[in-house]
């Protein structure tokens, strides 16, 4: 095709200019319309989003594998350089962990005995789906990743996504063969947690930075740097006791938590199927509670 010359891209006729201005206004208006629909009727937006994500995921899945291999080669070279010092550190860690293993075994036995004494309700069983991270939109506004497992693999909305280090996020949208994980650090993420040995309850709220903030701690809570933060299990979405991170800073910017998850090397996520009713049945639960309250008032 010929490249248009200067004379070809001449000033368009007034009618044409008017039409192009109209098209701009129309499309900007349409974009605003989409923004409004997204706020008022998130169901349609979510359906569209999962449909498009489902289409794209196989492509991403195929392309991301060589990328992963390449970054794997770099990592291996780095690991090779640190082999000796890492080996020493691991040996030391191994002896320490063996001691802990003995402690854990003893506690497990004791725990089981006490549970049976008290007839405690057993925790629901957990099963896992393991999926590869195939998409990471990045950017300044969201902290989410796409995984190559969806409805047909048993992934459901609200389930916890974990790595070997700890909690990474929760499933926010599910398609047929893909799902979107809302990371702990996303501005929309809220996770009920307990902090430290005192097990003070709070909520871990993301704000798109690498260190989410601890909110709604009780007035008596004493939080120190280095305290462990784990999921509390409140709300029934996440199993209790999943490690999240440690308190990294207590100061003017609020109480900040450094997650255990290594975001740069998050290649595989395990999706925890914790068989319990969570936010999925939230509306049903609220409905039941209201009905119960109404019945109570009527009496």
């Amino acid at each position: 095709m010929n490249k248009p010359t200067g004379s070809e891209i001449r000033v368009a006729s007034p009618l044409k200019a008017w039409a192009s201005r109209f098209a701009l206004l129309l499309l900007v208006g349409a974009a605003f319309g989409l923004m409004l629909i997204g706020r008022t009727n998130s169901f349609i937006v979510e359906e569209t989003r999962t449909a498009v994500t489902d289409m794209v995921t196989p492509i991403l899945d195929a392309v991301s594998q060589p990328v992963e291999t390449f970054s794997g080669v770099i990592d291996q070279a780095e690991a090779l350089a640190n082999l000796r010092s890492e080996n020493l550190a691991l040996k030391e860690q191994n002896t320490r962990l063996l001691e802990w293993q003995a402690v854990a075994r003893r506690l497990e036995a004791e725990n089981a005995a006490l549970r049976s004494l008290n007839r405690m309700v057993p925790d629901p069983a957990m099963s896992y789906v393991t999926a590869r991270v195939v998409g990471d939109p990045g950017g300044a506004f969201v902290r989410t990743v796409l995984i190559n497992a969806g409805e047909r693999n048993g992934v459901e909305k609200g389930q916890a996504a974990i790595t070997a280090d700890g909690l990474a996020g929760r499933i926010a949208e599910v398609g047929k063969r893909s799902a979107r994980v809302l990371l702990l650090t996303d501005i929309n993420s809220r996770v009920p947690v307990v902090v430290g040995d005192a097990r003070d309850r709070g909520v871990l709220a993301g704000d798109n930075t690498n260190a989410p903030e601890l909110l709604y701690l009780g007035p008596t809570a004493k939080v120190q740097v280095g305290d462990r933060v784990t999921t509390s299990g409140h709300g029934g979405v996440f199993p209790p006791g999943l490690p999240i991170g440690v308190v990294a800073g207590v100061g003017e910017k609020g109480i900040r938590v450094k997650p255990f998850v290594d975001w740069a090397h998050m290649e595989v996520l395990r999706i925890v199927d914790y068989e319990m009713t969570g936010i999925l049945d939230f509306e049903a639960q609220v409905g039941a509670a209201r009905a119960a309250a109404a019945a109570g008032n009527a009496q």
Binding site: V67, S71, G135, D136, P137, G138, G139, L146, W263, A264
Partner: peptide, 18 residues
């Protein structure tokens, strides 16, 4: 689509180019 690929480079993800 390319911008969506997980590149696994530390701290790059928030500033991936538009």
């Amino acid at each position: 689509l390319f911008a969506l690929l997980p590149l696994h480079i530390a701290d790059l993800s928030p500033i991936v180019p538009a």
